[in-house]
Design a protein around this nucleic acid. Structure first.
Lengths: 248, 248
DNA sequence: CGCGATTTGTGCACGGCTTCACAAGCGCCT
DNA sequence: AGGCGCTTGTGAAGCCGTGCACAAATCGCG
């Protein structure tokens, strides 16, 4: 419960956004950075929606939750919108992240440049295996998990990534919570039980593949079934009125 | 009872599972395997729901889409349910997966044991860098991406994982589709354009962290001050959790 | 200075998903 | 054998998210 410093300028003023909107804002942010690099200073909702892979009306509704952001007849100011989204997402400062589990996947995550360029800083690496403690990875030294409380306090870490085997993940999560971490990104294939107030997001590679497998299964079943299903379409349910053919 | 059912009987087999259900079935499957290892032969919806981290009513409705699966008063037969879910997900045979991009993350994925134990087999590794072609990883040799069509055909690959840098991902996706791949799991932080009939799922580590960052930001704002919202009410829409009772 | 082209912001309707609550079914115990 | 407790399966209601369609707003230009 260490009270973080509350900056004077970055006040706690933002509406409560729909969860679906929050999940899409990072995608908009990435697309906006890309547009900014290409020299665009403004972008229309249509253009940004295409770059982010969503419907333009959805994008406008999402952005409308942030307050007045666009200019009618013109579009959105790219840099201004970047600032607004980053502020809403709490990316005004580089957040420190702890990574627990320096195995196969943990190694890769520790070396992943995408963290550093998108608002995060891997501040510490942990492992339970004393044989790995002391190893240097990407300029960081692996510490033992017993040092969690000390390092979390010292580095003001509130987010942690779990990349341990499944059987260790719950134990690690308990110790993380105990040390003061309040957000966890879990790569272990298991359900984590955490107290209220702690957020957990899960990434399970096998689950993603199994979902794809279902669709593969369905697709192959369709080609075996009735006549005239050779058309590859019929996946989206977006267009009910406009029978618009896909341009190729 | 003669209640209204879903009138139009356009259900050949079970092609129409709700997408949300499909996304949860793998989690149930994993929990069931865990229960089976622990010696359980039956499980109640309450128990399985707890193991999978969902609501029990939701779980029952999900499973009801698979047909008669449980026994009232008893619960679900674990092994039977495993078989049914695996069949629906198309996991009756081990699906061959291609992995493109043997960099930092690709290396880790190639060595991830979770694929092998949960219905998949990494059948081929690819990279565009000739310096990496020929390298042996986990018993597989890295091949050049030009060999895609040949290997995809030979190994009957329909699912591919993209673990390349973002700037190469679209090109790789195009070549995968061209070679006959119809499902893609994309780890590159970019939007992929693919024709109809091809499924894409995306995993972006930075986006997951940014979503957590938002909630961290919100939490710290809540603990910062319980009263005295200094900004004038520029709230656009309904603020149903009435924080407006601030009288000073 | 006003008009038209353009684009945002949003009201509205629709469909999907979630949750509650309960009847129907099943096995066990007396 | 029959009732009783337990659990599934599911109607029904509410909520959330999506996408259409259009009014409001802004800029550029004649």
């Amino acid at each position: 419960m260490s009270q973080q410093r509350t900056g004077p300028t970055d006040g706690p003023d933002f509406p409560d956004l729909p969860e679906a909107t929050v999940a899409r804002l990072p995608e908009y942010l990435r697309a906006l950075h890309h547009l900014a690099e290409d020299g665009h200073d403004t972008v229309s909702s249509e253009g940004l929606a295409a770059a982010a892979g969503v419907n333009s009306a959805k994008l406008r509704k999402d952005l409308s939750h942030l307050g007045r952001t666009g200019t009618r007849g013109v579009g959105y100011d790219v840099t201004l919108l970047i600032d607004q989204i980053e502020q809403v997402l709490g990316l005004t400062h580089r957040r420190a992240v702890a990574l627990v589990g320096v195995g196969n996947l943990g190694h890769a995550l520790a070396g992943y440049a995408g963290f550093g360029t998108r608002g995060f800083r891997i501040a510490a690496l942990f492992d339970a295996d004393h044989g790995r403690v002391g190893e240097h990875i990407n300029g960081l030294v692996v510490r033992h998990i017993d040092d969690l409380p000390e390092v979390v306090e010292q580095e003001s870490i509130s987010i942690a990534v779990i990349a341990t085997p499944a059987h260790a993940a719950q134990h690690v999560a308990d110790r993380l919570v105990e040390a003061g971490v309040t957000s966890v990104l879990n790569f272990a294939p298991c359900v984590l039980n955490v107290p209220d107030g702690v957020d957990v997001r899960k990434v399970d590679l096998a689950i993603e593949l199994q979902i794809l497998s279902f669709h593969e299964h369905r697709k192959s079943a369709l080609t075996a079934l009735p006549a005239a299903v050779q058309k590859p379409g019929r996946v989206g349910m977006a267009n009910r009125l406009g029978g618009e053919a896909v341009a190729t």
